[in-house]
């Protein structure tokens, strides 16, 4: 579904991605782990068109997407739920969710997806008239995930969905990710909680200073000595 070959990207003169390659297949959950500053978030930004690709190739659904604007990628099913949630704090919960469905024109499908989000996160249904900014951190993350779902993604890029949340809420979010995956959404997950991510994912990539260090099945990475020492704190 997604194929990245020798991708290079950065901000101005600073090159952050120094030729990374990875693939995500239909139906998979793939996780990208690594230390802070390894380039995980930049990878996602490059995939979703926020950061310009300076070298290499990215193909999504068989098409080269280098230079395709971010808003067009959403239309094609590549949806990015960014780090730090980035919800619209002065729009209501409902309006935030509507924005998720911005590119869609199928009112019936939208209504079904909205019902599904409210089913997965009942708290959002309760607060749908409330401004997004008044929600707690956990609720905001639920909203961010729900909003991304409203775009009916084929490939969902999730950046640090557990950041700063209580364990119970993290568990809930991961449960939803698993359900999304079951319903056919392909997921590329960036997580600093490597253990949880690897337990959830089918495959994983380990990044270090802008390059892919390791690539393997998630279960294998969980057993890998280097990974255990560096990222699982054992």
């Amino acid at each position: 579904m997604l194929r990245v070959e020798q991708a290079r990207a950065g901000y101005g003169a600073v090159e952050v991605l120094r030729g990374i390659s990875l693939t995500v297949d239909e139906g998979e959950i793939v996780t990208l782990i690594g230390a802070n500053g390894a380039g995980k978030t930049t990878t996602l930004h490059t995939l979703s068109g926020l950061v310009q690709l300076t070298g290499g190739r990215i193909t999504f659904l068989g098409e080269n997407i280098a230079g395709v604007p971010a808003h067009e990628l959403v239309r094609r099913g590549l949806v990015h739920a960014p780090e730090g949630r980035k919800i619209f704090s002065r729009l209501t919960v409902l309006e935030n969710l509507e924005m998720g469905a911005y590119t869609r024109r199928d009112p019936d499908g939208i209504a079904r997806d909205l019902a599904r989000v409210f089913e997965l996160f009942p708290i959002l249904a309760e607060r749908r008239r409330q401004a997004g900014g008044t929600l707690s951190g956990g609720e905001q993350q639920m909203l961010a995930v729900g909003r991304a779902m409203m775009a009916r993604p084929r490939l969902l890029l999730l950046d640090e969905p557990s950041l700063g949340l209580a364990p119970l809420i993290v568990a809930r979010i991961f449960e939803v990710i698993r359900e999304l995956s079951k319903s056919g959404v392909t997921i590329l997950l960036v997580e600093q909680n490597a253990r949880m991510a690897l337990r959830l994912a089918h495959r994983g990539y380990v990044m270090e200073t802008g390059a892919i260090l390791l690539a393997d099945a998630a279960s294998a990475l969980l057993e890998n000595e280097t990974v255990r020492a560096a990222y699982l704190g054992e």
């Binding site: 409902l94 009112p107 209504a111």
Partner: peptide, 11 residues
């Protein structure tokens, strides 16, 4: 019921 109520308000 909630499904009905949450019909997309855009319309």
């Amino acid at each position: 019921a909630s499904h009905q109520e949450c019909r997309f308000p855009d319309e």
